[in-house]
Write a protein that binds this DNA or RNA. Structure first.
Length: 197
DNA sequence: AGTGAGATGGCCT
DNA sequence: GGCCATCTCACTA
């Protein structure tokens, strides 16, 4: 097993956590065993001041209350009637900021067509759903946690930073460069699907 | 390549 | 009632 990320990691400023999560290993335990995948795309959501964030102006509802937990918890919500999105809560309790995990590269399944290149698709593939909302990611017995990569899982890739996806309804925040990804990585979201031959 | 709509349901004012 | 931190397919050209 790699070394688990400690609670301290998630308390840092959210933009830093979003960038530093690139290359870290997302681990999910199911009946079948533990699946490990490498994070290749994230977005930061900055709480009260961020119009695109569910906790804009400190809004707190039953849906988003997990965002108010201490950094190192999971926040999972349901969108568009059919998809779940997985986020990592950051900062201290009462500061409702989080990082959306948008894409991962499976380490168990190498060479398989990308099925984890988008926030909804990766939740479906990894079987993440509302049962995981509010879960601690740092407790020993948690079914989801994060690890440092092992030596052979470390790759040198270029980080691209740009505006977030799908938030046109938030004009004042839509251009904030809070999306981080590995440039050219084949598991990053929103790539054109394979051309016919 | 770019645009648009449908699926589908819970959340929020 | 309208809006969504999505995804896929059909259509234009």
């Amino acid at each position: 097993m790699g070394r688990r990320l400690p609670a301290r990691f998630f308390k840092a400023p959210t933009e830093k956590v979003a960038r530093d999560l690139l290359g870290k290993i997302l681990c999910v335990r199911t009946r079948a065993g533990v699946s490990r995948s490498r994070i290749v795309e994230t977005e930061a959501y900055l709480g009260a001041k961020d119009q695109a964030c569910h906790s804009y102006r400190n809004r707190k509802t039953d849906r988003n209350k997990a965002m108010y937990l201490r950094g190192g918890h999971g926040y999972v919500y349901f969108v568009y009637g059919m998809h779940f999105c997985f986020n990592v809560v950051t900062r201290d309790a009462g500061m409702p900021e989080a990082v959306l995990i948008r894409a991962v590269e499976p380490l168990d399944d190498e060479g398989v067509e990308p099925m984890t290149n988008g926030p909804g698709k990766l939740c479906r593939h990894l079987r993440i759903d509302r049962r995981h909302d509010g879960l601690s990611l740092t407790r020993r017995d948690s079914p989801i946690w994060l690890e440092e990569p092992k030596a052979r899982e470390i790759k040198k890739e270029t980080i691209h930073r740009g505006p977030r996806v799908g938030i046109d309804g938030a004009p004042e925040a839509k251009d904030w460069p809070l999306r981080f990804l590995y440039e050219g990585n084949r598991y990053v979201s929103k790539k054109p699907r394979p051309r016919s031959m």
